[in-house]
């Protein structure tokens, strides 16, 4: 009786495996085809300088210490603006806290995830790179 149970489940198992032949393969040929990303995907950062007041909230909420560096300065109207702003991707964990807590919505995240590079220094995103990311990925879309 027990053996009969095994036999039945054996046959059911084979049929289940056979069904997979007609399903679409889940493999993605990566460099040629890319995965479809969610809108909320957390990739490389983008930064809008005009909205930023250099308040330092992003720096404070960042769980990875020393990732965001801000150098703030006053302009002629007495408003603060970031003279230098950098995000170090070596330390960043892509949690998205800086995006969520920014009171002015100055930081956004793009869908760019291909960040591998030969040098560590290029992974430290300076203000110009972040600005370019903003124009290329956020405004253009």
């Amino acid at each position: 009786m027990k053996n009969l149970k095994y036999l039945i489940s054996l046959i059911i198992g084979h049929l289940t495996v056979f069904k997979h032949i007609f399903k679409k393969p889940v493999t993605l040929e990566y460099p040629e085809k890319k995965i479809e990303l969610n809108d909320k995907f957390r990739g490389e950062h983008a930064f809008d300088v005009e909205k930023c007041t250099a308040c330092g909230t992003c720096q404070r909420v960042c769980p990875s210490f020393g990732t965001i560096e801000i150098e703030k300065e006053k302009d002629e109207n007495g408003k603060f603006y970031p003279k230098n702003y950098s995000i170090d991707l070596n330390k960043c964990i892509f949690c998205g806290n800086c995006v969520q807590y920014c009171p002015f919505g100055a930081i956004k995240m793009t869908q760019n995830y291909e960040l591998a590079d030969e040098k560590k220094s290029t992974l430290k995103l300076e203000i110009n790179t972040l600005k370019r990311n903003y124009f290329d990925n956020i405004i253009d879309k």
């Binding site: 495996v17 056979f18 997979h20 032949i21 399903k23 679409k24 393969p25 889940v26 493999t27 040929e29």
Partner: peptide, 10 residues
Amino acid sequence: AFFTQRKGPN
């Protein structure tokens, strides 16, 4: 590969 929903050598 087809049995396991993959593509196999391509």
